[in-house]
Design a protein around this nucleic acid. Structure first.
Lengths: 239, 239
DNA sequence: TCAATAGTGTCTATTAGACAATATACT
DNA sequence: AGTATATTGTCTAATAGACACTATTGA
């Protein structure tokens, strides 16, 4: 009796569970996000449309949600140690025509040097400008997920060192400043930027780096790659 | 054939899906969190131990994850319009002995005036000091979830108006400052605090309020209860 | 008048931002 | 030298924090 009674709870209909990824990089002076094309086969929802990379949890091989996200990221880009952060989760009866589903969305920042080669192999995956019109017409509720990821990234860039994870190491302060400016969409003062970055103490010198032109710049590495540092203030807001 | 092939994906073993809540309030000059006692019946894991309120999604009645969280909050406290924010999700094969499970954790801030009465009805639910020893020995991985919720709350209090959601309206600036101090665990300067709050422009005057003693204070209401405002700086950190 | 609390004013140290000046590299 | 970029220095306006002062209420 009791066994049947408690079993009853577990016999509830279980939602579908997926993991989706918003993977960002800076390529060609633009913030880009990795999109994949939905397969054009019968019974697959949204055939041919663009979507965030992701899919069902495989309880047999995924030890955890984060392990699942890392697996999917590795499969798509070959990158093993990105900056990976949980974004949010969405779940309701409507977002997937196959049934009540919940997705755990992550966002990852990677540098653009390695994944480019990986993408040549497959034409079903592509780096898209993160603000492009196509990213507002996507499969499932992925447009909403991407918009949330973008908002989170842009918000955090105002007061954290997140953009450091978009660059290959070692990088220079001018490169880092350029990355900030690309994500924020506005220019920053050089002197104030340097003071802020160096005072935050998250960078370690890694020897000078020769650019193509002009004076060589100091290279830096992120001292602790487990996460960004938080600055005591936001950047000055435009007036 | 194709139907069988695509069905195969949906025949994957589905994880258990739950929603858990860290509900905070300030009671007796202390930050408290609502805990419930696990039922002492056979086949229920962690019998008699303390846990965050929550449970399985019911795909028949819960339109979405957030609706599920609001339902559980209403059932426990009777509060209908709290401040509710998604915290994070955790999923792996170990956290629930009944199988691979994923939980969507939310945290809610409510004022302590209404829920107190509700709690008298049931002795299986209790407001616990959020930093108390008992909150480090909880069912499932709830100690970790609670620790994350606490860290998120304390972190956000440094640069947002979140504590306003812990007070019944209208409230006074001294009351709001006291709430900040309770959550942060350190005193704040009165003048700087007032300037910050009023300059942020999220408060609307609601007539003076008589205290038990001394000069009456202006009452305020939060103008936009959909979310907190972000201050341009953090509070000064202790040195 | 006193006690208690609310609210304001003043001063100062800090600092972000603007921008000028200097340093270093290559041609 | 000249050009291009990196890095540092100087000045200023804004402001958070410290703390003293004033205002208002009730006993």
């Amino acid at each position: 009796m009791k066994k049947d009674g408690s079993r009853a709870k577990l016999d509830f209909e279980r939602p579908l569970v997926t993991v989706d990824l918003a993977i960002f990089c800076v390529l060609e002076e633009t913030l880009k996000v990795l999109l994949v094309q939905r397969p054009r086969v019968a019974d697959e929802p949204f055939p041919g449309e663009w979507a965030l990379p992701g899919g069902f949890i495989d309880v047999a091989i995924d030890a955890s949600l984060e392990a699942c996200a890392l697996r999917k990221l590795r499969e798509k880009t070959g990158v093993k140690a990105p900056y990976l952060e949980q974004l949010a989760s969405w779940g309701d009866a409507e977002r997937d025509p196959r049934g009540w589903s919940a997705t755990h969305a992550y966002f990852a920042l990677i540098d653009a040097t390695r994944p480019e080669a990986r993408l040549e192999e497959s034409n079903a995956a592509q780096w898209m400008a993160a603000g492009a019109p196509i990213t507002r017409r996507m499969a499932f509720d992925h447009a909403r997920i991407l918009a949330t990821a973008l908002a989170r990234l842009r918000g955090k860039v105002e007061y954290t060192s997140l953009p450091a994870f978009l660059l290959p190491e070692p990088f220079t302060l001018p490169q880092l400043q350029r990355t900030y400016e690309i994500v924020l969409g506005r220019p920053l003062d050089k002197s104030a930027f340097r003071k802020r970055m160096l005072d935050a103490g998250f960078l370690g010198e890694a020897g000078p780096i020769d650019g193509a032109l002009g004076r060589a710049a100091m290279g830096y590495r992120v001292l602790d790659r487990t996460g960004p540092v938080t600055f005591p203030r936001m950047f000055k807001t435009a007036e």
